[in-house]
Each structure stands twice: as structure tokens, then as C-alpha cells.
Amino acid sequence: MQRHFNIYWLALLILPFLFSNCVKNADSKLADTSYRHWVWINPQDSDTEAELAARYKKYHDAGIVGIFFEADSEKHYRAAKSQGLEAHRWMWIMNRSDALKAHPEWAAVSRSGVSCAEKPPYVDYYRWMCPSRPEVAEFLAKDVENTLSKDYVDGIHMDYVRYSDVILAVNLWSTYGIVQTQELPEYDFCYCDICKAKFKEKYHKDIDSIQYPQENLSWKSFRYDAVTDIVNQIGKVAKAHDKPLTAAVFPTPDVAKRLVRQDWTNWPLDAVYPMIYHGFYKEDVPWIGDAVKQGMRGIDGRFPLYAGLFLPDFKNNEELDAGIKYALENGASGVSIFGDVTDEVLAILSKYNKKSM
């Protein structure tokens, strides 16, 4: 009798757990049958609530599940959420002119010894902070904390979470009148005293004594890790709020590490959004599929990948349609769109809501 009694109570304890897992698995399988699309937007104050309601309903109906907003606009966030969309704050991380204005000593320093606070590379808004400084990490963690404390913000989407481009995408060379077939000193960051001291402490090497520091593998790893440490600290804040952390990153793991010291396959993300802007690299539309394939291999199923597409890179709607197909066929969970999201673009996206079973 006692044995039957124990089995009875054991069943009562186990059954809810089994039922819960069955529901979760069913939800997961249901989610796996649908592609999820996103858009990057800079919200405009002039938009009315009626305009936003109509716009975001069309987004939702086309298979878009969330929006990355480049500014904090409660009106836009709540309008999106009222139409069933997720509303995430799209934040600049390491490129922060506001921080350097108050703290120029936080600036990244080039191999030629010039501070980003004094002479930014390429363009005036390139004001990069040094990721090795504890006060920079503290500033960013506090900034993310303040943002995620707002009930209308569903998550943090990181951008510019890297160093300045040591080498620009090849299509931009003519724009700036630069030929970057090698890493030039004025674009190679960060060589501030804090970075040099921390590198020496870890590797027992003086970076100034190395003849070709740009080729030193330990120095490369040190800088990959410095950015990753920033992401790890931001990740702790996001986890404490139980809100997702995502990132816009360079198109493939190799390109990201080579051009901007960004090792995104090793970050604690809930999803990644590589900016597979094929025109920037003078590549054709099929390259989108190649880039997705490389990214999927790098993350090895640890989190989903969404292919970032730059609408001006596509000559026509047929090319955009093909680009989306290449992304999805190679493992992307959906796409993220940057550009003018017209009704024609929405019509194309709406074709790619359900995965073929």
C-alpha cells in the first residue's frame, strides 16, 4: 500500500513538469515553422499615433515581428507593441561622442598616437571609446540598465560594438580616397596606455617593442577579448532584467575580426544580425547566402541568425526577393531590413512567413 501511495505522489510531482515541457516543445516547434523578420528604424517625432498604428499593423501582417529603434521614443515603442511587435532599443555602444565630450580621456588612441576625441578617423562622428577602461564598461552597463528599466523597452540591440574600421569595406575606399591593402597606423586602434599596460600584464610583451604590432596574434586576440568583455558585462545587465540582448555585426565572422576586431561568434547573445550589405563589399546577391552559411557555421546553433539586408544595395524587387531566398535557404531565421520599407518590400517579405515543412 505504501508503495502505491509513493508512486501516486511521485506521479503528481512529475506530471506537471512533463506537461510544461510538452507545451514548451510544442511552442518551440510552432516557432520553428515561421520566419521572423525585423526592421531597423530611426523614429521620427512628426509621426502621429494614427500613422504609426497603420504602419506597424502592415509590418505585423507582413511577418515582421520586431523593430529596432535608434532612439528612445515611447510613442513609437508603445505603438509598435500595440500592434503585436517587439520594440527594442538600438544602441550605439563603443562609438559615443556624448561620452567622449565629457571624458576625452576614454578615447581610443591610434597606432600613430592620435586620440579619437581629437581627430576621429574617416568621419567626424567616429568617436570611439577604449574598451579596456573599467570606467567605460561601467558607463555602458549603467546606460543599458537605465534603458532596460523602462517597461516599454523589450530588449537591447547593440551596434558599433567594436573598434573603428582598421580597413573599410572595399566599396568605401573611393569615397574616402584611401587604398587600404594593409592596416595603416592612423586607423589601427587602440594603443592607449591602459591597453598597453593590460596587454603587457597578460602576455608579458611590450607592444611598443614589437616591430609589426598589427601582425601580432596575441595583440589581435587581446583586442577581440576587450570588446567581448564589454559585451559580457552588458549581457549581465540584460540577463538581470530578463530581456534579450542582440547585436548588429559585420557580415561574417572572418570579416568582422579582420576589419573591426569583432569576435561575435563568442558573444552571449539571444540573436545576431550580421549586416550582409553585399554592395559594400562589391559582391553580388548570391554572396548573401555564402555569408549566412559562414555565420551559421560559426555560431553552431547557439542562437539564431537574421540576415541584415541594405535595401539600396538591391537594383530591383526581384533582386531583393532573391536575396531573402539566399539568406533563408542557408539557415537564417529571417531577415532584418534597413531602408525604406515600402508596401512593395512588405509584399515580398509576406511571401516568406512560413517555412516549408
Rank of each mutant, 00 (worst) to 15 (best):
I64Q: 04
V65A: 03
V65S: 05
V65C: 04
V65W: 02
G66S: 11
G66K: 03
I67M: 12
I67C: 13
F69I: 05
E70N: 06
E70Y: 11
E70D: 10
A71C: 12
D72K: 08
D72Q: 12
D72W: 03
D72I: 10
D72S: 05
S73Y: 14
E74T: 03
E74Y: 06
K75H: 05
K75S: 10
K75V: 04
H76G: 01
A79C: 13
A79T: 12
K81T: 04
Q83C: 05
G84P: 00
L85R: 04
L85Q: 04
E86C: 06
E86G: 09
A87R: 03
A87T: 02
R89P: 01
R89T: 04
W90K: 06
W90E: 07
W92P: 02
I93A: 14
I93N: 04
I93S: 09
M94N: 13
M94G: 11
M94E: 14
M94S: 14
N95D: 15
R96K: 08
R96N: 14
S97G: 15
S97M: 12
S97E: 13
D98K: 06
A99C: 08
A99W: 00
L100N: 00
A102L: 14
A102E: 15
H103F: 11
P104F: 11
P104V: 12
E105M: 05
W106S: 00
A107N: 06
A107R: 02
A108P: 06
A108I: 12
A108V: 13
A108Y: 03
S110Y: 01
S110Q: 03
S110N: 04
R111V: 03
S112V: 08
V114C: 08
V114R: 10
S115I: 02
S115Q: 07
S115E: 05
S115T: 03
E118H: 07
E118Y: 01
P120N: 10
Y122R: 12
V123Y: 05
V123E: 15
D124Q: 13
D124G: 11
D124V: 12
D124T: 13
Y125M: 11
Y126H: 14
R127N: 06
R127H: 10
W128G: 02
P131G: 05
P131E: 05
P131M: 07
P131V: 08
S132E: 09
R133S: 02
P134T: 03
P134M: 02
P134K: 06
P134I: 01
E135Y: 02
V136P: 01
V136Y: 01
E138S: 15
E138K: 15
F139P: 00
L140I: 14
A141T: 11
A141F: 01
A141E: 09
D143G: 03
D143T: 14
D143E: 15
V144N: 00
N146P: 05
N146E: 15
N146F: 09
T147F: 00
